[in-house]
Structure formats: structure tokens, C-alpha cells
């Protein structure tokens, strides 16, 4: 099937609070989809609906071709959930946790033991395999969590904020693991509030804000959607700054009178840059410094999600 996740006009309220206000989402099989949003944007609610943990009020949701509401058991057979609060049994050891999931997925005793050993080595859990999960670091717990989700490789893997609360080194380890999983063809729905994480891992990103998808595209598309790359000209005196503004009379130019900077849109090619600087030199408006400025996903995020607007609604 072409799409692992097909969601249309999905709504969900808790009492008077609308958490999802009509979400549309399709995720092609074998891709990593990033769901980006601030706390309370509705990311976890969406994941919990798709994982059959909670119901929804309106719209449709299909996972791996199965209707989430009508055929929950088939959906459960196709998904694995890696939760915000790691979905591991803390009283049990790594080995016990993995064997438990293997047995629940009907692997035989011998097959369970073999799969457990395989996952312990693949997810680098050997040193802690027989220690209780309560003693693990955050990174170790997430790796066990991921390993438990991969006992039987799912059609769709949910990664709900997989690196929240991890130190940078553990985060890099989890990222590396996620990339490896993605390479095996597992479809991943990743929720995160970290733009860098979505940029690093996701093929496509949806920005969720106030229960709606406010933007969607590849990380590159989203960046260009907000503002293209600009050449930032910095001036040392007002005269040259004014001269530059007089020369560059296009609506795309943005200027800062206090900092004496002028941002000019560019395609980044040397030719366009040379033309720009030549025309400025002719007009006696050569800048003191020239810099290239590419928008980050942070710019995208801050432009698309405005917390003040949200509070007023």
C-alpha cells in the first residue's frame, strides 16, 4: 500500500478543550515523518489515537490499511509504540522485557531467546542485559524501549519524543539507531519539539500548532517557505546604507535602520552575488561586511507557531 498512515479531518476534544481541530496527514510507506510542535500542540494525542490507546471524535484514521476505530486489533498488530515515558517494565531486566514482548508476539521459547540475544547485541544492551531497568540511564532506557518495539519489526513505529530529557551523547546514539531502523524500511512517525531532531531524521515534517497542521513539507521546503536565503549587507555609516536602499528598490529587501543591515534575497549563486556587489559599488554603497544567511527550522517554527495568538483564541 502506498500510505502507511491516512488521516483525514481528525478531531478530538477533552471536555471543552479541543486538542485536535481537523488534522490531515498521509505518510508514505517506508518514510520517516516528523510531527513538530510545542508542548500541548496535540502531538501525543495524535499518536495515542493512531496507536489505538484513545478514541477520537470525528474524521477518519487508517494505519497500515486498517481503520483505527473499527479494526483496532489489526492496527495493534502493525504498530509499535515507543513512548515519551519509555514503554519498558522498570522492575524487569532487559532480557526479561525483550523475552516478554517476544512471547506476547507468539515467538517460541527458543526463538524468543534467540531474538532477545540478537536485539541485545544490535541495540548495545549487553552490559545491562541482566540488570533491572530502574537502574538504567535515560539513554539506556530509550534503547531498550526501541529494541522492544523491534522484537517483531512493525509496519509503523511511533517515536513519541524519543530524545526528550537525554544528554547530547545519548541523543546522538538514539538518532543513529533511528536512522538504522529507517534504513530497514520501517515507516516512522516521530513527534518532537526539537527542530534539529526533525531536520536530522525526518523525510517530511508537519508542523502542528493548536491542534492543526499549519505547514507540511520536506525540511528544505519548509525552510524556503518562510524566507529564502538572503545576503546580509552590513554598513558602517548611514550614508552608504541609504545609498544601498536607494539602489536596491525592490519589495523583497528588508532593512534594519538601527543595525544598518540590508537583507537581499539570493539564489546563492556567485553570479548573482557578483552582480549585486558590482551594482552597489557603482552606486557608492559598498557594504562593510557581506554575509550569507540561510533560514533555520527555528525561523520556520517561530513564524508558523505564535504562542500569543494561541492564547487569545
Amino acid at each position: 500500500m502506498a500510505y502507511t498512515v491516512e488521516v483525514a479531518d481528525l478531531t478530538k476534544s477533552y471536555g471543552a478543550t479541543e486538542v485536535l481541530r481537523g488534522v490531515d496527514l498521509t505518510i508514505p510507506a517506508g518514510t520517516v515523518h516528523g510531527m513538530l510542535g510545542a508542548n500541548g500542540a496535540g502531538k501525543t494525542t495524535l499518536v495515542r489515537i493512531l496507536a489505538t490507546l484513545i478514541g477520537y471524535d470525528g474524521g477518519t484514521a487508517r494505519v497500515a490499511g486498517h481503520d483505527v476505530a473499527r479494526d483496532a486489533r489489526a492496527v495493534r498488530g502493525a504498530v509499535s509504540l515507543t513512548g515519551q515515558y519509555a514503554a519498558v517494565d522498570e522492575v524487569l531486566t532487559t532480557r526479561e522485557n525483550l523475552t516478554m514482548v517476544a512471547r506476547l508476539r507468539r515467538l517460541s521459547g527458543a526463538a524468543s531467546a534467540a531474538r532477545t540475544d540478537e536485539l541485545i547485541s544490535r541495540f548495545d544492551l549487553g552490559a545491562i542485559a541482566d540488570r533491572r531497568a530502574t537502574t538504567y540511564s535515560g539513554g539506556q532506557r530509550r534503547r531498550l524501549d526501541l529494541a522492544m518495539s523491534m522484537v517483531v519489526p512493525p509496519t509503523l513505529l511511533f517515536l513519541d519524543e524519543p530524545t526528550t530529557g537525554l544528554d547530547p551523547r545519548s541523543r546522538d546514539q538514539v538518532w543513529a539507531t533511528v536512522r538504522e531502523l529507517a534504513d530497514t524500511g520501517v515507516t516512522v512517525l516521530l513527534t518532537t519539539q526539537y527542530l534539529e531532531e526533525a531536520d536530522q531524521l525526518a523525510d517530511r515534517i508537519s508542523v502542528l500548532d493548536g491542534g492543526r497542521i499549519v505547514a507540511e513539507g520536506t525540511p528544505e521546503e519548509l525552510k524556503t517557505q518562510v524566507a529564502g536565503e538572503v545576503v546580509r549587507l552590513t554598513y558602517g555609516d548611514t550614508a552608504a546604507y541609504e545609498a544601498a536602499l536607494a539602489t536596491l528598490r525592490t519589495p523583497e529587501v528588508t532593512a534594519d535602520r538601527v543595525l544598518l543591515t540590508v537583507d537581499v534575497p539570493t539564489d546563492g549563486s556567485p553570479e548573482s552575488l557578483r552582480r549585486l556587489l558590482d551594482s552597489l559599488a557603482v552606486a557608492g554603497a559598498s557594504p562593510r561586511r557581506v554575509g550569507m544567511h540561510a533560514p533555520s527550522l527555528d525561523d520556520v517554527f517561530l513564524t508558523l507557531t505564535n504562542p500569543k495568538q494561541e492564547a487569545l483564541r
Binding site: T52, R73, Q84, V88, V101
Partner: peptide
Amino acid sequence: NGIVDRFRSMP
């Protein structure tokens, strides 16, 4: 516990 979410999302 998170583990119960895992159980509930398993067949």
C-alpha cells in the same frame, strides 16, 4: 507506567 501503553497498543 509506559509499559502498559505498550501492552494496550499490542494485539
